[in-house]
């Protein structure tokens, strides 16, 4: 399995291995088929993709409009075929901040964000993000001004979310590819400001 460095020792990894063994023993899939599915899932998955979308939205207001209206169609414009779910992009403003979580499991748009970080799958993050997001954010080093309203999005159905961060001050002269390098995976989840 690719893209899971550091996860092998987690209890969930043992559970997944046991589940894989049972699936294979029951004849539902072969080891090779499972590997193929996982390889396909992670092949081109990277937060660089989400960062490219953000940088385009920062530099092209019309694209930003289309992105917020229909995430799948806008992502396709940049060559990202996001299928199997509805992509909804939520934009931060000076007055509002968005934070993503999946309290029931760990859903998020893998192809645009890369494999999810282990903390995103942790019980602690999933329980606390919906209950005390301001405290969670401060532990990530994000201290929002008092008046900024926090919107938490719990991906409980077939919609996957992506945060469009605010463009950092002082980046006015930068080209799109330079801007993209400022965008982090945490920024796309909402646990960083960019």
């Amino acid at each position: 399995m690719t893209g899971t460095a550091g996860h092998e020792e987690l209890p969930v990894a043992a559970r997944v291995r046991r589940l894989e063994e049972r699936v294979i023993a029951a004849g539902l899939a072969t080891d090779d088929e499972l590997d193929e599915v996982l390889a396909g899932l992670f092949a081109d998955a990277s937060p660089v993709n989400g960062a490219r979308i953000v940088a385009r939205a920062w530099t092209d207001p019309a694209f930003r409009e289309r992105l917020l209206a229909d995430g799948n169609a806008a992502a396709a414009e940049l060559g990202f075929a996001v299928s199997g779910y509805r992509l909804r992009v939520v934009a931060n403003t000076t007055q509002s901040h968005n934070l993503l979580v999946c309290t029931l499991c760990s859903c998020y748009p893998v192809s645009l964000l890369g494999p999810s970080p282990s903390w995103y799958k942790s019980f602690a993050y999933r329980a606390r993000a919906v209950r005390e997001p301001r405290a969670v954010l401060s532990e990530f080093g994000v201290r929002l001004p008092e008046g900024v309203e926090i919107s938490v999005w719990d991906a409980s159905a077939e919609t996957r979310y992506l945060v469009l961060p605010n463009r950092p001050a002082g980046t006015e002269g930068l080209a799109e590819d330079e801007l993209a390098r400022h965008v982090t995976r945490n920024g796309l989840i909402g646990t960083a400001t960019v």
């Binding site: 938490v152 719990d154 991906a155 159905a157």
Partner: peptide, 10 residues
């Protein structure tokens, strides 16, 4: 708390 939580529900 002053935040909101949006959940997708059938």
């Amino acid at each position: 708390g002053t935040h909101s939580v949006t959940v997708d529900l059938w």
